[in-house]
Amino acid sequence: MKSSNYRVRYLLPVMIIILVLLSIIATSWGQVGVPLANTMEIIFKHWGIPGYADITLNPQQDAVIYFIRLPRVIVGILVGAGLAVAGAVMQGIFSNPLADPGIIGVSSGAAFGAITAISLGLTTSNLFTMPFFAAGGSLLAVLLTVMLASHKGRIPVIILLLAGIAVSMFMGALSSGLLTILNEHRVREYLFWMVGGLDYRRWEHVYLAAGPILSGIGICCLLARHMNILVLGDNEARAVGASVQKMRIGILSVASVITAFAVCVSGAIGFVGLVVPHIMRIFVGPDHRLLIPVSALAGGIFLVACDVLARMIVPSIEIRVGVITALVGAPYFLYLLRRVQRSEK
């Protein structure tokens, strides 16, 4: 960790600057073009920054910037950060560079939970009912995957992936079954839960996800040193006195809850948790105390950038951001899989 200090000292501030700049660009750029200066004016006025109170705004621009694009970008940052951290944490806990909330079934579990809440008609009564169900679904999925994959306390890389795929497909089947019963014409709804996107995200989504995701990331940062121990495997971790099972369940639950809230506000966006921590590990090394905060920032940047790309490719119709992340992530996943296989030989 000492060796990477130098690089990290500059990496964190640089990433924050990139994230802020990217967010501003993502907010001002779109079908309705709003100059950067106006974008800033609108945001500053709403935030009550002194000196901007008296500015008169173009109502159309105001609506687009503040009520459509800005919450979308913020949800993107939150979801990207949350999924990247969940991915980093799961890779650490399973000591497996291929773990990711999407791949091991946590996301589809969360989606299933959310759909169950919708189908039971519980979502209108309380804002937190759906996330509660989603968290339940994600925990159920992770439990299933781990039970299927573990053999004598060990979880081989490939078996974890296969178990994850099985659980994912099972949860997906349950979800689509429920959706069919709910309303067979709501293909859009189905798409939302299965592919994930940031369209139509409002401030309510920001309010729903911000607290849990940010505090989840905070908890993960605090427990980062323990993850460094878990990475070394069961016996090695126990040899230095770690309560492996307790810690694993605890941290995994936090990661699952983060994932559940991310899924609630954006659907199941795949591969963020796989690609981002892996690339960040190349930059800052495997120490989770750095990897987690850096992955959080990079996850935000990655998802917002993918969303801009999704809006940019065919301007008249938006491609869902989940499609873009899958297009980027799936080949990367295959590349990693090959590397892991080679190193296991």
């Binding site: 060796s3 000591s95 460094n228 990475v231 070394l232 495997g233 230095v240 590990r281 090394g285």
Partner: peptide
């Protein structure tokens, strides 16, 4: 232990420091 497999590129000092856990 007999064989420890470290799946990530921890530095030697990182590994030795885990002894302080």
């Amino acid at each position: 232990q007999q064989d420890v497999s470290v799946n990530f590129d921890f530095s030697a000092l990182d590994i030795v420091l885990t002894g302080r856990y």
